[in-house]
Amino acid sequence: MPRLRLDVALTLLVLAALALAPLLGFGANHYLTLFARIMILAAAAVSLSFLVGGAGLASLGHAAAMGVGAYAVAILDAHRLTDITIVLPVAIVAAALFSLLTGAIAIRTEGVNFIMITLAFGQMAFFTASSLAPYGGDDGYTLYDRTEIFGLRLMENRLFFHYLCLGFLLFCWGFCAMLLASRFGRVLRAARENPLRVQAVGFAPYPFRLLAYVIAGTLAGLAGVLFANATEFVAPAYMGWQRSGELIFMVILGGLGRLSGAILGAVLFVLLETWLPNLTTHWKMIFGPLLILAVLFMRGGLIGFLGARRG
């Protein structure tokens, strides 16, 4: 399958470029900020791609799980708890628990109701965050410190942080790919295509789907931890449905059904979102139609588009 090699090769190329960028003269702070945003959102998009493209669960509330991770950082920060030995376990447990509770209900529904109920849970998280007056409420919360690693302030080193994000993105990609290829992933993929068939060979899809939902949510929560550190700021908007929509867009833009697509989609999305405002303040009037055109004419996303070009 030459198509598979092409999209993986392209993604590896992008990742290599990100790895080398600081060494090739793109080490200035504004570049590194941009790269961090790309890599963290790409990691979240990969986890969403695993969920949507792999398990067939089209969640419109994925940003909420990411926000839970970010808020774990913020809330602990307010209590001056910034070491990774505390932040990481708390963030993981919080994101996993949030996903478990919401997923347990959401996965009972199907199709469009699933999209809507995940959106509703996302909005609940959004409003909960807005209500957290001690942690900034509507206005958001500015961190005192980035997360420390065993007492060391490594995250403040921009290069370290750059490679940490890159490492996390690679981990997400590899981990989700591994899951999809495993026995567990096979059941998920089969249930996406034909749930009845899966039941008729003796599997109840529910626990598989719920676990996939929890795993994806936890990965998103970890991405949220990095995101909070990258921006040193956390706000309810991190959880809003618009952000979830953006994540979905990255996944579809790149090509649903391929994890690498989510990475390519995130890169393109963040670049567009960064570059377009230079042209006009009303850049969303360009961005919106671009989105529509991408959906209408790039079926299968970038990867499908590239594949069609070659074929």
């Binding site: 009037m285 919106g288 139609p289 989105l291 991408a294 959906v295 209408l296």
Partner: peptide, 16 residues
């Protein structure tokens, strides 16, 4: 999902 996205594009455009 495609419908969600494309109509999301319409929202972005019209709001702006």
């Amino acid at each position: 999902l495609s419908q969600v996205l494309a109509t999301f594009g319409v929202i972005l455009f019209l709001n702006q």
